[in-house]
Amino acid sequence: MKRKLYEVAHSRAGDKGDVLMLSLIPYEEKLYEPLCNAVTAERVKHHLRHIVKGEVVRYEMPNISALQFVCQNALLGGVTTSLGMDTHGKTLSYALLEMEVDLE
């Protein structure tokens, strides 16, 4: 069944320079494995292709049942000189949560 990520998980955005970090944390810890299978770095890069211009690396955190996506070249140069509206990229966690996934 296809579902939006916001139905099953929450996320927080962070920034360092032009790098965007997005956590992805399932509400139910038993959904961690299915999320690992469904939300790959490649799929996130494709979903955020209008925003993230560089590499996306995924870190797995089984100890807390969470994923972390580290996205290069994502913040229009970074908070201090960006011409964007949301210079930190604080709203971008909700861009990730718009992704549609098929959970086994």
Partner: peptide, 8 residues
């Protein structure tokens, strides 16, 4: 959890 991963 959200804070542990914040800006990491």
């Amino acid at each position: 959890k959200e804070q542990l991963l914040y800006e990491v």
